[in-house]
Design a protein around this nucleic acid. Structure first.
Length: 410
RNA sequence: GCGGGUGUAGCUCAGUUGGUUAGAGCGCCAGGUUGUGGUCCUGGAUGUCGUCGGUUCGAAUCCGAUCACUCGCCCCA
């Protein structure tokens, strides 16, 4: 191994990649703005407790995937997800004054997982958090915002929405007991993974991929059997809202979220195009989170989407800017000055610093230039240049004085 | 963290049962006469065959380790 390799699970993003990433992030921000969200930027690292106390002491993210380091007496952690940091900012910034609050964020996250396609150790998310509203219609709106984002990225037909309810605290506790009671007699028949899950997080047994587990789980009680009337009504209003908005979904009673802070609505947009990493945008309600962190009891709902995963789905994104290529024949300084004037006028200009005319034209072509401005000595003597349309091959001589306005008008 | 696959020029890959100067396409560079690109033709450069170690007279080819990527599990966006 060479130390010149990037760290495992990290990647450089070259211009072709960043165009795709920007497309995803910019679309997400634009959509969020339309729903009334403002952007928040929180630090990339927090005190470790911000994550360990909120995500669940038994979650894999906390127990084995965090990049944690200490500085003096302090234990710090590179953020593995966005919600906990936003909740912390909400509390420490006294933002309870300005509820309801709609926040959008984007940026890198860090998880020490085994890398795979669509799964890196440093990856990027965009996400939204809607704080201070406990109406189920807020859930519908937040899900619909995710749907809108995917639709605007052209992924509407590549993605399916699964939704479930985890119920309120009472429902969840009752269901957990019922599930454990059902599973215990089958304990020895479960896979090793599921035996562990039974101890730590029984709900996770529901979405095991092991065939044996699946047969057992097929007959298990479902969440909806244990919902309190209030929780049942809440979920009905969420799905009712989605129906009213015409958003297609399937209720998946076995859908469970990994992080502890979720309650009520849980949802996932998935695709089959990415192999095992099919979840592309997911989230849910987290009414207890802020209080659990020591802030004022505040309901919340949100989602996060994986930028790399979405970027893989959107495919190539062409650079929308087609520059003008300035091709000097003699006086390079004059060309430099001309390029500068055009740029000052708002025109994208490409200019090489070496090569004969043929090479410069070839480069102009490769840069996807729309026009070439040929600055030859003959024309220069007349205060003019040759303007060549690289798409049609037509060219004509033009006074330099009107070049900028001519280019801007085309 | 567990199990499987892969690793040869910038990219996609070929390299026969281990044998002498390791190949193709694309890309790149230079030409096809002096100021014109995208097509075409000709020529050229490029690799410690992922890394380290072993077997062998001889290894890109076999073995081991290691690193990276990849598929599935786990987990999750």
């Amino acid at each position: 191994m060479s130390s010149l390799q990037p760290v495992r699970g990290t990647h450089d993003l070259l211009p072709d990649d960043t165009r795709r990433h920007r497309r995803v992030e910019d679309t997400a921000l634009a959509v969020a703005r339309r729903y009334g969200y403002g952007e928040i930027v929180t630090p990339i690292f927090e005190f470790t407790e911000v994550f360990s106390r909120t995500l669940g002491e038994t979650s894999d993210v906390v127990t084995k995937e965090m990049y944690t380091f200490s500085m003096g007496e302090e234990s710090l952690t590179l953020r593995p997800e966005g919600t906990a940091g936003v909740a912390r900012a909400f509390i420490s910034g006294g933002l309870a004054q300005s509820l309801p609050l709609k926040l959008f964020y984007r940026g890198p996250m860090f998880r020490h997982e085994r890398p795979q396609k669509g799964r890196q150790r440093q990856f990027h998310q965009v996400g939204v958090e809607f704080l201070g509203v406990d109406s189920p219609l807020a859930d519908a709106e937040v899900v619909s915002m995710g749907w809108r984002l995917l639709a605007e990225l052209g992924l509407g037909d590549k993605v399916t929405l699964e939704i479930n309810t985890l119920g309120d605290a009472d429902s969840r506790a009752a269901y957990r007991d019922a599930l454990v009671a059902y599973l215990m007699p089958f304990r020895d028949q479960l896979s090793e993974d599921s035996r562990n899950r039974l101890e730590r997080n029984p709900l996770r047994v529901l979405d095991s991929k092991d065939d044996g587990d699946r047969r057992i789980v097929a007959q298990a009680p479902v969440m909806s059997d244990c919902l309190t009337p209030a929780a049942r009504d809440f979920f009905a209003q969420v799905t009712g809202g989605l129906d009213a908005l015409g958003i297609p979904y399937v209720v998946n009673p076995k859908l469970v979220r990994g992080l502890d802070y979720y309650c009520h609505t849980a949802f996932e947009f998935t695709t089959t195009a990415l192999g095992a990493q099919g979840t592309v945008l997911a989230g849910g309600r987290y009414d207890g989170l802020v209080a659990q962190m020591g802030g004022p009891a505040t309901p919340g709902i949100g989602w996060a989407a994986g930028v790399e995963r979405l970027a893989m789905l959107v495919g190539e994104v062409a650079d929308p800017v087609r520059p003008v290529a300035v091709v000097p024949m003699g006086d390079a300084v004059a060309a430099l000055r001309l390029a500068d004037e055009l740029r000052a006028a708002g025109i994208a200009v490409e200019m090489g610093f070496s090569g004969n005319m043929k090479k410069r034209m070839a480069r102009a072509n490769k840069a996807n230039a729309r026009f070439a401005v040929i600055l030859g000595e003959d024309e220069a003597a007349r205060g003019a240049c040759t303007l060549r349309d690289l798409d049609t091959g037509e060219q004509s001589e033009l006074p330099l004085a009107v070049l900028a306005e001519t280019l801007l008008s085309r």
